[in-house]
């Protein structure tokens, strides 16, 4: 059994590195807090919902649908589709986490927010398991605290951010940045171009199902490109 004892250096590095990626979550969390109060589903249920879902887009969609008294089946289908990209994240990280203790493989995935995935996926392939695991937790727990604090602030303080500032626009800005940082070779460019292009075409698909189709298309196209171009190109 390898050593997985707490590694403060790795934990604090993960915590530090996620802060920059966590900023855009603050206004989104606060908006969700406000939407909870307006949705009529109850502040406590809405608040618990924010940290069991831990995903801005799906959470907002859920609150909007529940406020309109949409059927539970449609609400859950929507959340399932919007959050299905996390299964792709899970698949991508699986080999890197396969050597982790059993308890991690149940607790760890709960925290797999987009930014946590972006950071975990960008770590060097040869990072030791113990360091990788505590780095993951450092980023995951830090982002969790930031998210729950933001939702709670929105819930209690209400609309304190002037909507004219459009602070939630930091989310598309962040994802554009993460996209560019994650491109390391030419097949990566193909993945982004096809993923983005197909997402544009499938934007009207019901319950946000287009994003999953787009990701699968992007990944498949990049793999085809890789066999033609070679991974190193």
């Amino acid at each position: 059994m390898s050593d997985f004892s707490f590694d403060w250096r790795a934990f604090s590095t993960g915590a530090r590195d996620i802060i920059a990626l966590g900023f855009p979550g603050i206004p989104v969390g606060m908006v969700i807090g406000v939407v909870i109060t307006e949705s009529g589903i109850g502040d406590l249920a809405g608040w618990v919902g924010s940290w069991v879902i831990l995903a801005g887009a799906a959470n907002l969609a859920m609150l909007e649908l529940m406020a309109e008294q949409t059927s539970a089946a449609v609400v859950l289908l929507t959340v399932a589709f919007i959050n299905s990209r996390h299964a792709m994240y899970s698949a991508a990280l699986r080999p890197r986490f396969a050597g982790f203790p059993r308890w991690f493989r149940f607790v760890g995935p709960y925290f797999l927010i987009d930014q946590v995935f972006a950071l975990a996926a960008s770590q060097p392939v040869d990072m030791p398991d113990r360091e990788r695991m505590w780095n993951y937790f450092g980023s995951a727990i830090t982002l969790w605290v930031l998210w729950v604090a933001s939702v709670t602030a929105g819930l209690f303080l209400g609309d304190i951010i002037d909507p004219d500032w459009q602070l939630t626009f930091a989310v598309p800005l962040l994802f554009a940045g993460l996209m560019l940082l994650s491109i390391t070779n030419r097949p990566g460019i193909v993945a982004a171009a096809v993923g983005g292009g197909v997402a544009l075409l499938t934007a009207g698909f019901p319950q946000g199902s287009g994003v999953l189709i787009a990701i699968i298309a992007g990944v498949s196209a990049s793999t085809l490109a890789e066999t033609r171009l070679g991974a190193a190109s």
């Binding site: 990209r85 792709m88 994240y89 698949a91 991508a92 987009d114 995935f117 972006a118 996926a121 960008s122 989310v171 598309p172 994802f175 554009a176 993460l178 996209m179 994650s182 491109i183 097949p187 990566g188 460019i189 993945a191 982004a192 171009a193 096809v194 993923g195 983005g196 292009g197 197909v198 997402a199 544009l200 934007a203 994003v211 787009a214 990701i215 298309a217 992007g218 990944v219 990049s222 793999t223």
Partner: peptide, 14 residues
């Protein structure tokens, strides 16, 4: 290629 594909699928339509 999950990372570039999924971040693009969110960022580009947005």
């Amino acid at each position: 290629y999950v990372a570039p594909a999924s971040f693009a699928a969110i960022a580009i339509p947005a």
